[in-house]
Lab assay of single mutants.
Amino acid sequence: SNREKAKQAFKELLRDKAVPSNASWEQAMKMVVTDPRYSALPKLSEKKQAFNAYKAQRE
């Protein structure tokens, strides 16, 4: 689905920018907000969900 693709793109973005798994949401956003993939997930709640999944995978 498109939403799954968007989630993957967002997680790839976090990986590409080397966002550490112990980063806070605010720290992570400063690192990725300028990338076009930041807008892949329109809802903030979805971004946070993908971010938390990313962190869980990295730990």
Rank of each mutant, 00 (worst) to 15 (best):
N2S: 09
N2W: 08
R3F: 08
E4C: 01
E4N: 12
E4Q: 09
K5W: 03
K5I: 10
A6D: 13
A6V: 07
A6F: 03
A6T: 05
A6W: 00
Q8E: 13
Q8F: 05
A9H: 04
A9C: 12
A9M: 11
F10T: 12
K11I: 15
K11D: 06
K11Q: 15
E12L: 02
E12H: 07
E12N: 11
L13H: 05
L13Q: 08
L13D: 08
L14R: 01
L14D: 03
L14S: 06
L14P: 08
L14G: 05
R15W: 11
R15H: 14
D16A: 04
D16G: 02
K17H: 09
K17E: 05
K17Y: 10
A18K: 12
A18L: 11
A18N: 12
A18V: 06
A18G: 15
P20D: 05
P20T: 05
S21W: 12
S21Q: 13
S21G: 11
S21A: 15
N22I: 00
N22C: 09
N22M: 02
N22S: 13
N22R: 03
N22H: 10
A23R: 03
S24F: 01
S24M: 02
W25E: 12
W25V: 08
W25L: 09
E26L: 06
E26F: 01
Q27W: 00
Q27I: 07
Q27L: 04
A28D: 04
A28S: 05
A28Y: 00
A28C: 08
M29K: 15
M29R: 12
M29L: 09
M29P: 11
M29C: 09
M29N: 05
K30W: 00
K30R: 13
K30A: 12
M31W: 00
M31P: 08
M31F: 02
M31R: 08
V32E: 10
V32T: 12
V32A: 04
V33T: 13
V33M: 15
V33K: 15
V33Y: 08
T34M: 12
D35W: 00
D35K: 00
P36D: 12
P36E: 11
P36Y: 01
P36A: 10
P36I: 02
R37P: 05
R37H: 01
R37G: 02
S39C: 11
S39K: 09
A40P: 01
A40Y: 06
A40E: 05
L41C: 05
L41P: 07
L41A: 04
L41I: 08
P42C: 03
P42K: 11
K43H: 07
K43A: 13
K43G: 13
L44W: 03
L44I: 11
L44V: 11
L44N: 04
L44Y: 01
S45K: 11
S45R: 07
S45D: 11
S45C: 04
E46M: 05
E46D: 14
E46W: 00
K47L: 02
K47S: 04
K48P: 07
Q49S: 10
Q49M: 07
Q49A: 15
Q49N: 04
A50G: 04
A53Q: 15
A53D: 14
A53L: 07
A53K: 10
Y54E: 06
K55V: 11
K55N: 07
K55R: 10
K55S: 08
K55L: 10
A56R: 11
A56C: 04
Q57S: 14
Q57I: 03
R58T: 11
R58N: 09
E59N: 04
E59W: 03
E59Y: 08
